[in-house]
Computed example of a mutant assay.
Amino acid sequence: MCARREVILEAALEVLADRGFKGTSIDAVAERAGLTRQGVLHYFPSKKRLLLEVLELRNRLARENLADRRVGEDWAGDFAEAVAFEQHHPSLARVHSVVMAEAVTGQEPARGYVRDRCRTLQDHLAEHLAARYGDRLPSGLDTRTGATALFALVEGIHQLWLADQDGDERYPEVVREVLSVLLGSDTGPPVCEDSAMPAVKG
């Protein structure tokens, strides 16, 4: 990736995490990046395009963090590591939380992005759980319910930590323990394609 483009994305990540999409301006990103407005627009012709690229950056960084793991052999550990990674990089967690909040209030492009992402991730989780375990998980939950519960667990953990970053430091371990109950001691299903959540690889 072009070095200047990377600088712009990193600046936009910080501004979006602080201000949200509505409160972010191209001028603010340019100032944070040490560039002119036209310098930013040369690489990102619209604020919407910039937001979507920042969210893809978040996914890419999450993928890279798991690159040294044999993802899928320890599914509970993979999700726990994903949660720990974002706790060490709060801007990544904050920008996701801000986008979720704007989606709840009906703001675009957050609403469309979050709706599609939530549906896609839950569908992929359910498909991979069904491929591995059949209709029921070792815990007794049906695979669709298990996928929704797992998705909600990770999303909720992020929100709890962001609201109180001096609170429970065991959140990654909480994720590991809950997944161990859901899935038993068996290894997890293979990786999917969204980087934000390792089992659906995000």
Rank of each mutant, 00 (worst) to 15 (best):
L162K: 00
M100N: 11
A126H: 09
H96Q: 15
G156E: 02
A130T: 15
R176W: 08
L162Q: 01
E155F: 10
H124P: 01
E173F: 04
H128K: 15
S139N: 13
A126D: 07
V104H: 10
T105H: 12
F151R: 09
D166T: 03
V98D: 00
V95G: 05
E155V: 11
Y133C: 08
D164L: 01
L162A: 02
H89S: 05
T120F: 09
V83W: 08
H158A: 10
D142Y: 04
R119F: 04
R136D: 04
A93P: 05
P172Y: 06
S97M: 06
H124F: 08
V83D: 02
G140V: 14
W161K: 01
F85E: 03
L141E: 09
T145D: 08
L121Y: 10
D123P: 00
V174K: 03
D142L: 06
L129W: 04
Q87D: 03
E169Y: 00
F151H: 14
L153G: 01
E155A: 12
G140W: 13
D166I: 00
V178R: 07
L125E: 03
R119K: 09
E169C: 00
Y171M: 08
E127M: 14
E155T: 07
R144I: 09
H128F: 13
M100G: 03
T143P: 01
H128T: 13
S139F: 10
A101P: 01
R144H: 12
A84C: 08
H124V: 14
E127G: 07
T148N: 03
T120V: 05
V114N: 08
V174D: 02
H124R: 13
T120S: 12
D142F: 07
G134E: 10
R115M: 13
H158Y: 06
E102A: 01
T143G: 04
A163M: 00
S139V: 13
F85L: 07
P138K: 10
R176D: 06
L150K: 01
V95W: 05
L129R: 03
R144G: 06
R144N: 05
P109D: 07
L125H: 02
A110V: 06
R136W: 11
V95I: 13
V98H: 00
A82E: 07
C118A: 15
R115C: 04
V83R: 02
A84L: 15
R111P: 00
G156Y: 05
R144K: 12
R132S: 11
P172L: 09
P109M: 06
L121A: 09
R136I: 05
S139C: 15
F85W: 14
A82L: 07
R132A: 14
L121G: 04
G106L: 10
T120G: 11
P109G: 03
F85N: 06
L121M: 14
V114P: 14
R170S: 10
A101Y: 01
A130L: 13
A152Q: 10
Y113H: 15
R136V: 09
H89V: 03
V95E: 02
Y171V: 02
L125K: 00
C118H: 14
L162R: 00
Q87C: 09
L92D: 01
H128M: 12
M100K: 12
M100V: 12
G156H: 04
P90C: 04
E177L: 13
R144M: 07
T105C: 08
A101W: 03
G167S: 03
L141S: 10
A103S: 15
A84P: 01
Q87E: 15
T148H: 09
D168A: 07
E155Q: 14
